Amino acid sequence: MSLELRKHLEELISLTDEEFEHIHSFFKFKKLKKHQYLIQENELVTTIYFVTKGLLKASFIDKEGKEHIIQFAMENWWISDFQSFYNGMPSVINIDCLEEVELCSISKENLEKMCSENHKMEHFFRVKNSFGYVALQQRILSLLTTNAKERFEQFSHQYPQLIQRIPKAVIASYLGVSRETLSRISNKL
């Protein structure tokens, strides 16, 4: 797991062995089985997670009990309930494992300490947060301005590796369409 973490960090910053060992000391490692929850609604979230193996989904359950999928996280992605993490309020989303998962985690306290001690890591997380914000904005705009077929094409183009890993019903929920609509669209393509 530490090799995957180091490779991921070094996509944006360069680290000496000493620097990485110090950074590595702030992280904990965790394994979860398929269908286990990483985060459940109403928990106070004090940790963010880096996925080294597996696939997770973050979702929100509305008042009618319908699940709305907010995001997926696969290898080399970060996931948490960031609203809870940054604002100290109870989680509003659930994050569960679609596959067996291995994670590196860091607490808010350790993240702040690590970033204050190493400005390279502060830079890393600033850039990662910016990328996440841009991706979220693109997702919202896509939901507002494209039809179901266009959203499926965008998803297939942007995340081809996920099409085979995620059940069609889950992809349909992510795209905001019914399973039947997604089947019609994917059969035409």
Rank of each mutant, 00 (worst) to 15 (best):
R126N: 13
E99R: 12
T146G: 01
S84H: 11
D81F: 03
I163D: 06
R151F: 11
V134L: 07
N129Q: 11
K128Q: 15
H119W: 02
L103E: 06
T145R: 14
W78C: 00
L162V: 11
G132C: 07
S156G: 05
F124T: 05
E150W: 02
L136F: 13
S84I: 10
S84V: 09
R139I: 00
I140W: 02
M121P: 10
V101F: 04
N129V: 03
G88I: 05
L143N: 12
F152K: 06
E100R: 10
Q158S: 10
P160W: 05
T146I: 04
F82E: 09
E102T: 07
C115G: 11
S156I: 03
R139T: 04
M121D: 08
M114V: 04
L141M: 12
H157M: 04
M121L: 14
I93F: 03
M114S: 06
N147W: 04
F85M: 04
I163Y: 04
Q137L: 11
L175W: 13
E102F: 00
L111E: 12
L144T: 10
R165Y: 12
F155Y: 14
F82Q: 08
G132Q: 12
N129S: 08
L141V: 12
L162E: 13
C104G: 11
P90M: 00
F125S: 03
E100D: 15
Y133V: 06
G88R: 09
S130C: 07
F124Q: 03
S105W: 02
Q154W: 06
Q161I: 08
M89T: 15
Y133D: 08
F131V: 14
D81N: 08
T145P: 05
I171W: 06
T145C: 01
S156L: 06
N118G: 00
V92G: 04
L136A: 14
G132L: 06
R151N: 13
L144R: 11
V101P: 06
M114G: 04
S91Y: 08
L98M: 13
I140A: 04
S80L: 03
Y159K: 10
S105D: 01
N129H: 13
M89I: 14
V92D: 09
I106T: 14
F125T: 05
T146F: 10
N110L: 07
F85T: 09
F125R: 04
N118H: 07
N94R: 13
Q164W: 07
C115M: 15
R165T: 14
S80G: 03
P90C: 00
I163S: 02
S142R: 15
N87R: 12
F85L: 09
